[in-house]
């Protein structure tokens, strides 16, 4: 056994955290472009190919549900045979647990899954692997996300993004849903990952292998697709709405959609904004 102090640093060993959106409402809605079984079959093939690329590669899969998230697969544990079997077994158990946690039966829309939770779990397990094992692989996170952004998770997601940026973990995003995800656009942009919204989801496997399979070192030699633009809009802290313009606390940088007397995060008292009164006066003149 190699001692812990002399870790193996290799530039082509990857630690891939895959976050799979298991929002049942999304997969059963018309927004889902392919069935969940087809999606799973393509993703599982992709995971297999990752493990085949390098013997030391490690893959962890986290399911992102409506009410909870959990690890459903870790390639470093368990038998090397029947990988898919054990993953699907865990996934089924997870779905049952997630359903038990679900309280109300009448959800109108497709809701948003707990992306913030699974991102945090991914970052935590990356740290754990760094600190415990003898290997020091190159980590990255791949979000396979379909349901729309939950503006309520804005702060939590942004915090995860910034901690990923700090620990130099790129977040790659593969958006399966019909709409672009502003959260994932920002996540990939800030952490230097790749954001992709595939057009032909029948060929999802091709997208995954072409864009997301290469390790971080090889990535620097490749010309990967670049997003057209990034939606940088933020959610306000008071109503969790996505806003174009707003007020920002000068002390703690909290964002609000309207003027408050006091910052709800840090408690600083704000003065009356000067510009509003002057512009009003200006407007009254004509």
């Amino acid at each position: 056994m190699t001692p812990v102090s002399s870790k193996q640093y290799a530039d082509d060993v990857s630690l891939l955290m895959v976050l799979i959106d298991t929002n049942p409402l999304f997969w059963s809605s018309s927004a889902a472009p392919l069935s969940f079984s087809k999606f799973l079959s393509q993703v599982l093939s992709f995971l297999n190919s990752i493990l085949l690329l390098n013997q030391l590669n490690q893959v962890m899969v986290i399911a992102t549900g409506l009410n909870s998230c959990d690890y459903i697969y870790d390639s470093s544990k368990g038998p090397t045979s029947q990988r898919v079997e054990s993953l699907l077994q865990k996934l089924e158990e997870f779905v049952v647990k997630d359903e038990e946690l679900n309280k109300d039966d009448s959800v109108d829309g497709i809701g948003s899954s707990l992306l913030s939770g699974s991102l945090s779990m991914a970052l935590c397990s990356i740290q754990r692997i760094f600190r415990s094992g003898s290997l020091h692989p190159q980590p990255r996170i791949l979000c396979m996300h379909g349901s729309q952004d939950g503006p309520g998770q804005y702060v939590a997601i942004m915090n995860s993004i910034f901690s990923a940026q700090r620990s130099m973990v790129p977040i790659d995003s593969c958006v399966i849903g019909s709409q672009h995800s502003a959260f994932l656009q920002q996540a990939s942009y800030i952490t230097g990952g790749v954001y992709l919204k595939p057009q032909h989801l029948d060929g999802l496997f091709q997208y995954l292998t072409t864009v997301f399979a290469t390790d971080l070192h090889s990535r620097s030699f490749l010309q990967l697709p670049k997003p057209v633009g990034v939606d940088f809009r933020a959610s306000c802290f008071c109503h969790k709405n996505t806003i174009d313009m707003g007020y920002i606390c000068s002390v703690c940088l909290s964002i609000f959609c309207k003027h408050h007397k006091k910052c709800s995060t840090c408690g600083s008292a704000f003065g009356q904004p000067q510009t509003v009164s002057t512009s009003n006066q200006k407007r009254k003149a004509p």
Binding site: L25, S28, S30, E99, V107, D108, G109, I110
Partner: peptide, 8 residues
């Protein structure tokens, strides 16, 4: 976006 099904 209306979901066609209930949660369960």
């Amino acid at each position: 976006m209306k979901s066609r099904l209930s949660t369960s």
